[in-house]
Simulated scan of single mutants.
Amino acid sequence: MEQNGMTHLRSPYTVAETLDRLQIILFGNGIDVFATIDHRATAEAAGLSMTPATVLIFGAPKAGTPLMIAAPTLAIDLPLKALVWQEPSGAVWLSYNTPEYLAERHGLPHDMIAAIGGIRNLCEAAVKPGPL
């Protein structure tokens, strides 16, 4: 499902399993994971509660740097991010900004989208049923 420049993929796994699968895929493709932000844990530390929501920040400097040179404001959206979150109903989703949205938002030349286009395959593999 795509909406407002984001793709939302339903995951058959828990939030933790989906995150683990995505990280395994990223590492297997030589992509660095720079940070993990666990919003639920932060909320709980502040005395609040929310369903699980974790952002994984990842990328490859050799791919991202030329993009930021071509469109400097793209640096606000790079490295790439994926959000793994759970609805109150229990459904788990993996969401990310589409490469086309990022290109349009920052005026990135169309021929350079391929450098970030791989996010689709990586995220789809993470939520695909079965072993990695």
Score class of each variant (00 low, 15 high):
Ala60Cys: 15
Leu80Gln: 14
Thr42Lys: 15
Ala126Asp: 09
Gln3Lys: 13
Thr18Asp: 07
Ser89Val: 04
Phe58Lys: 08
Met68Val: 06
Tyr13Met: 01
Val55Gly: 01
Leu48Gly: 11
Ala35Glu: 11
Ala115Asp: 13
Glu100Lys: 10
Thr36Ile: 14
Pro66Asn: 02
Thr65Asp: 08
Thr18Tyr: 02
Pro72Asp: 02
Pro52Trp: 02
Met6Cys: 11
Gln3His: 15
Trp93Met: 12
Lys81Tyr: 05
Tyr101Ser: 05
Leu122Pro: 08
Pro79Cys: 00
Asp111Met: 10
Gly130Leu: 03
Met50Asn: 04
Val127Lys: 06
Glu104Thr: 15
Ala103Gly: 00
Phe58Thr: 07
Gly28Asn: 05
Gly47Lys: 01
Ile31Trp: 04
Glu100His: 10
Lys62Pro: 10
Gln86Thr: 06
Ala75Pro: 06
Ile25Thr: 12
Gln3Gly: 09
Gln23Ser: 12
Ile37Leu: 12
Gln86Pro: 07
Glu2Phe: 00
Glu44Leu: 10
Glu44Ser: 07
Asp38Met: 00
Asp38Pro: 00
Val127Leu: 03
Asn121Asp: 15
Gly5Asp: 04
Pro88Arg: 08
Ala71His: 08
Arg40Ala: 11
Thr98Lys: 04
Lys128Trp: 10
Gly64Gln: 11
Pro61Ile: 05
His8Ser: 14
Ala71Gly: 07
Trp93Pro: 11
Ala70Pro: 00
Ala103Trp: 02
Glu17Ser: 06
Gly28Met: 01
Lys81Met: 08
Thr54Cys: 11
Asn97Cys: 05
Asp38Leu: 04
Ile25Tyr: 03
Leu94His: 01
Tyr13Ala: 08
Met1Trp: 10
Leu108Ser: 08
Arg40Lys: 14
Glu100Phe: 07
Thr51Ala: 08
Leu19Gln: 14
Ile57Lys: 10
Leu94Lys: 01
Leu74Met: 03
Ala75Leu: 08
Ala91Met: 15
His110Ser: 15
Met50Gly: 04
Ala71Glu: 06
Gly5Ile: 03
Ser95Glu: 03
Met50Thr: 15
